[in-house]
Design a protein around this nucleic acid. Structure first.
Lengths: 157, 157
DNA sequence: GTAATATTTATCGTGTGCGATTTAATTGCG
DNA sequence: CGCAATTAAATCGCACACGATAAATATTAC
């Protein structure tokens, strides 16, 4: 048996150059994140929301009336992404954008009644997603934390 | 101590509605995948490549001269994404698109000399990324496989 | 108090992803 | 053979992400 044949997959992961995409950790993240969005799509379509829009509303449902900057820190997005996203939610009548009293540079994003009402219509989604993964809650939490640990190691922000 | 206070995080993950984004598994995937692309960016910039372009070339470096459909199955992308992506690589002179002899519907994507040469210039990248994660090869492989297991459970394709 | 600096958000251009549809070619079935 | 059904790519439109930059306001230094 050759040396190559007995190499562990772990060794293979760092030594082979280049790996095909299916073996790359980055591709696992990339393709699974996209698949997750596909899983959300049929659940969000009845609410007329995209996945990033749902994330932004989830942030506001947890804590309303935050500035663009504060939302960006939570969602890890910059104003060049957030401003158009928030404006689309505003045009749907779900949020309102108002200049902060005291600091006119800041824009505060606030849920409308309609935006708050949507929370109830979205309440079933987390359970639906958990069910689709077919994984135990403990496993989901553990995997989430391992992925976040990786993100934090890559973190420049 | 209230019942709520002693709930495990796992219970919390499925019971609280809605979770704030930082607690959502989907958001861990979403934000970590984006962070990973940010990590690749300075390594790919000298080669003039974006991250999806690098993925496509990696696929071809593993197995050249494949059809759009075959590449799509590997990268989990449809022709509406792939066709423009491949055309941008073609305009950089890295790949060539030719109609298949025998089935004129299929387009075969082949590396040019220049595209093949780029493999050597990208050879250091996997190790750079592995180093940036600060994780042991075994851990990287295990995490990759857990993420892929999740993707496969979500898989409709 | 004012000029320099910093902070916050917005704007613009490019490159994805993807739903929906179209075009072109092949296959299957009588 | 003849033609409907299928398949492979491409096209179009929309919504992100993000680098680079600009515009507006606030803070700091002097």
């Amino acid at each position: 048996m050759s040396m190559l044949a007995i190499k562990s997959r772990a060794t293979y992961l760092t030594e082979m150059t280049p790996l095909p995409p299916p073996d790359m950790l980055c591709f696992a993240l990339y393709s699974t994140a996209h698949r997750m969005q596909q899983t959300y799509k049929p659940l969000l379509a009845p609410l007329g929301l995209t996945y990033p829009q749902y994330l932004l509303l989830s942030a506001l449902w947890s804590e309303d009336a935050r500035t663009v900057g504060a939302l960006g820190r939570e969602l890890q997005l910059e104003s060049n992404t957030l401003t158009p996203l928030i404006k689309r939610l505003e045009s749907k009548g779900l949020v309102q954008r108002t200049r902060d009293t005291g600091d006119d540079r800041q824009v505060r994003v606030t849920l409308t009644d309609s935006g708050r009402a949507l929370q109830a219509e979205a309440a079933h989604i987390p359970d639906c997603i958990a069910r689709e993964t077919g994984m135990a809650p403990d496993d989901l939490t553990r995997l989430r934390d391992e992925i976040l640990a990786l993100r934090n190691r890559l973190s420049s922000t």
